[in-house]
Design a binder for these strands. Structure first.
Lengths: 180, 180
DNA sequence: GGTTTTAGTTATCAGTCGATAACAACTTCG
DNA sequence: CGAAGTTGTTATCGACTGATAACTAAAACC
């Protein structure tokens, strides 16, 4: 007999995946819990019951994205524990651009006190992990994160990434200089 | 006799100022036209009548922020036409953090086609201007904008800027390395 | 002074959204 | 099997929000 229902744990994970897609497009305020529910194929009230509130859903989504980035870096460091190695892995994350864009939306929404703490914590953990994995100096890590932020924002702007919008010459100048 | 009403032009400018404050806090979707109206001290329908729609108001606000950044850079270049000179001016913009955060919200909202074009245009103009003012290479400009994006996001996260939230040790490491 | 233009308001609405409540159906286990 | 726990749904609501319409009053102009 085929199991027709998911366990709460499985559903939780599936909803977070759906939420990454949805929130990446509209941000926190610009996305409805119903959009998330539709992507996951469940009813909107069920989403609320599982997470308690839209805010908790968003927090879980941002935390998931942060965890995934950390995992990517750990994997990369196992092969090449340098900033270049981690950077290459990060850029490949553009193929899962929604992950990065969700983080960006989290950063942008940090003005909300309830979200701010979680977001700062997430970014701080990333900073610490990169220095731990690579032994980079604070200056080197700063430049690494600056480059990462540029990549993230250009991804959000649809200048970088799989579905980049064709654009003006300046983009080519800028993109041509991104280390591969 | 004191003039008790503003011209449409004056009111337009005042509303954009109010919108910078409001949108910086909640982003596009997370801010109501009524919030903007209250800050400016007018009624909500009047805001809509002046700008036509919330989206047009947001676009005017993002354009204003972009123009202001360009103006800051032009002024700075008149004194010190180097990337360091422009960078110092940009960092001083953190005292008007809302300007930078509004731009960030614009970037994050670029997934919306109606906003995306305007936002990419705005960022492209900034890139071209910096290269024109400083004669920087594409690589130098890229690093400049990467650093700028990090500053902007850290400002939005309340890690940098006048009202920075006290935070963990890693912040001190990162901030200590920011060139003054 | 009166008329036209421009700046601004109040009243109102149709649509949307997060959340609650009550109920239904599948699974598990004694 | 049948009871209990878990997974899910439909129905519904109160609050909010952008936008429209109709109206008012201050300036400007002749």
């Amino acid at each position: 007999m085929v199991r027709t229902r998911l366990t709460a744990q499985e559903r939780h994970a599936q909803l977070v995946e759906a939420a990454v897609t949805a929130f990446a497009q509209g941000g926190y305020a610009g996305t409805t819990t119903d959009q998330v529910a539709r992507i996951a194929g469940v009813s909107q009230p069920y989403v609320i019951r599982i997470f308690g509130s839209k805010q908790e859903l968003f927090l879980a989504t941002v935390r998931h994205a942060g965890d995934r980035v950390q995992q990517i870096w750990r994997d990369a460091a196992a092969v090449d524990p340098t900033l270049a190695g981690l950077g290459k892995a990060y850029k490949q994350l553009l193929t899962e651009r929604d992950l990065l864009v969700v983080l960006l939306h989290g950063f942008a929404a940090a003005a909300d006190p309830a979200l701010g703490d979680a977001v700062r914590q997430c970014y701080g953990d990333q900073f610490a992990l990169v220095r731990e994995l690579t032994g980079a100096s604070a200056e080197e890590a700063r430049d690494f994160f600056a480059a990462g932020m540029l990549i993230t924002v250009l991804g959000a702007m649809r200048v970088l990434g799989p579905d980049a919008v064709p654009t003006q010459p300046w983009m080519a100048d800028l993109l041509g200089t991104l280390p591969q």
